[in-house]
Design a protein around this nucleic acid. Structure first.
Lengths: 349, 349
DNA sequence: CCCGCATCTGACAACGTTGTCCAGGCTCTA
DNA sequence: TAGAGCCTGGACAACGTTGTCAGATGCGGG
């Protein structure tokens, strides 16, 4: 005579799998509901013998605690959300992984979503995460107005912005020193004798892009070089348009002798273009790229530490959740100029 | 006279934020609970005027539906889980992103976790996802025994394995043609005159590594070349050890004239080593790497389409959820040999 | 003026878990 | 042997939402 369940499972069973519940386990083990809960959660006050019986029933039925119900009761989900631009971008992989590791150390899972640089999608994602009651949010913003997050902040959802600051709300933010890094990178080119230096970057509505542009301008100004409009190409990030922009800068009677690339994707494309180009043009890129050292010449970059950004943000998030934090803060991580050859080429005119 | 809430919020309020509930919204709008639910879910049967009042209360209170409670009631979470090895690996970024896009098209969120190639951690992650009642799972297995998933499968959790098959259970799996790809790659080297060909790959307990090794052996055998143990280095993946292994193969009286690299990380390291090496050695790598075409020589690879793997798996997952699928299937995606120079170098002996 | 019908609204139970509280049985001591 | 105190186990309510069902309201027609 196999199992004789005390109560028949409800018949309706239209839900997806009719998974066993604690009630089922309790019935099978012949104990009370709460006793099962105690065993599942490792709470004290259960005899070894009872525990064994319960555990047996759990294994036999393949019971898994339903965390949705648990969350409903306890208020915390032990999960945090990460909204970034595109997980396929090699800059975000390590960042996401770093956040995940910190979350894991705090027993939390990571849910992430890609905004595809679309403010509406960012908001949609963030709100979906909030509806799932994540305990905290790490956001790499696509939009520039985050007032929609006010109720969440008030409700105590820990929130840290990364890479770009929040718009219109007061929140923690962890950034790279985009301005300083770009300024150093451009100054480096100037130090190597360049005066006509091109800048190819993203739309200035993106904070990082704007800051890097500011760094470029600042370095040029410090060197007393008036910047010509034709040297700057903004809002350009897909390969075809970068190509067009670069070709333009490199042609004409007074071509640029060096290019500062505003992010990793631009850098990659520019490397490709320059390798096809007869005249040697210097290059410094923002963000490191893999194998940069093996190219001819090696690509000089202003490197930022994506993992450190993620780690710092996540740690701060959990300190918010601990309650050990008070006022929002702005944390800026330094960048590092990595010279590999392309940035040290002399002007070729 | 500002708001006069019908009922005071409960005092206990030890939960994190005391977020407003539908009850609060109902009280404020002066309507019933269910009416709020109807508005929130866009169900019919609410007057425009009532809806307006409810919406106003929602905005004023910053209400967000609690999806945990919703899940508890409805049985579906509209989220799927992805367990992979390491999100920071450029192979998995696009894969994850592809899964996310398909999920998004089905209105689902993606939760992902990195197993770090540790079977225990894989299981821990998978079970955590199941406890959160994800509707489906995409798993890139680290372990080789997945019987622990039996209750989940029985309960109707849609499951698709990617990149490597499941162990001891019958489940959908989407793979690259690792065997055929490796065989073609090695045959390509043989066709260019190589006979002493090294193989550097991951531990053969990893399915992909074993298959690629099998492909290597098969190509060698087809060419009638007996493989020497010193040509093979297995279970080697971190840079230092790859370096040691490569140095060994390249030294001695009869060094290898070509190397087949078993995955992207190995390839990158080998490229680096060969660039320091005087004798030109041919190289074919499994997995494409960024900028491979710009290196000198360009790196010839057996490319697999990570995004296609993810997309295919996710689509299959949702077809399982639709109920339009019956028996588990094994889907194999082709690889593509991309010749760029390094694989076409003649033997240098 | 009343009835029937359609439309809108709300009371209530249920989802699966955990916290609170109490009951029963045991051991130990006086 | 009785009483105190501890240990184990279970009944019950609550978490916030949705499905069911019945009640309220308004309107038109007989």
């Amino acid at each position: 005579m196999p199992e004789t369940p005390h109560r028949a499972n409800r018949l309706s069973g239209t839900r997806y799998g009719n998974r066993p519940t604690m009630k089922d386990v309790a019935a099978r083990a012949g104990v009370g509901l709460k006793t099962v809960s105690r065993v599942v959660n490792g709470e004290p006050g259960v005899t070894a013998e009872t525990e064994r019986r319960v555990q047996e029933a759990i294994d036999a039925l393949g019971f898994r605690r339903n965390d949705s119900a648990r969350v409903l009761r306890k208020g915390r989900t032990a999960s945090i959300g990460l909204v970034l631009e595109d997980l396929a971008d090699p800059f975000y992989g390590p960042l996401s992984r770093a956040v995940e590791e910190v979350a894991r150390a705090h027993g939390a899972l990571l849910i992430n979503g890609s905004s595809a640089e679309d403010p509406d999608r960012e908001q949609e994602l963030v709100l979906a995460l909030c509806a799932r009651r994540v305990d905290g949010l790490v956001v790499i913003p696509a939009g520039d107005d985050h007032r929609y997050l006010e109720p969440e902040l008030k409700a105590g959802v820990a929130t840290v912005f990364v890479d770009r600051p929040a718009g219109n709300i007061d929140a923690d933010v962890v950034l790279s020193d985009n301005y300083g890094g770009a300024r150093d990178g451009v100054a480096h080119l100037i130090a190597h004798g360049h005066r006509r230096i091109g800048f190819i970057g993203d739309m200035p509505r993106i904070h990082t892009a704007a800051e890097r542009l500011r760094g470029y301008r600042s370095a040029m100004e410090d060197a007393g070089i008036p910047v010509q409009d034709s040297w700057m190409s903004l809002g350009v990030t897909n390969p075809e348009r970068v190509r067009r922009a670069a070709e333009e800068m490199l042609s004409g009677p007074e071509p640029v002798t060096a290019i500062f690339a505003g992010n990793n994707r631009v850098t990659v494309t520019v490397v490709r273009i320059l390798s096809e180009h007869p005249r040697r043009t210097a290059l410094v890129g923002f963000d490191d790229i893999e194998l940069a050292d093996l190219l001819q010449p090696g690509v000089t970059v202003v490197a930022q530490d994506a993992a450190a950004l993620g780690r710092t943000a996540a740690e701060r998030l959990f300190r918010q959740l601990d309650g050990s934090l008070v006022a929002p803060e702005r944390i800026e991580l330094p960048t590092r100029l990595v010279t590999r050859g392309s940035g040290e080429l002399p002007p070729a005119d």
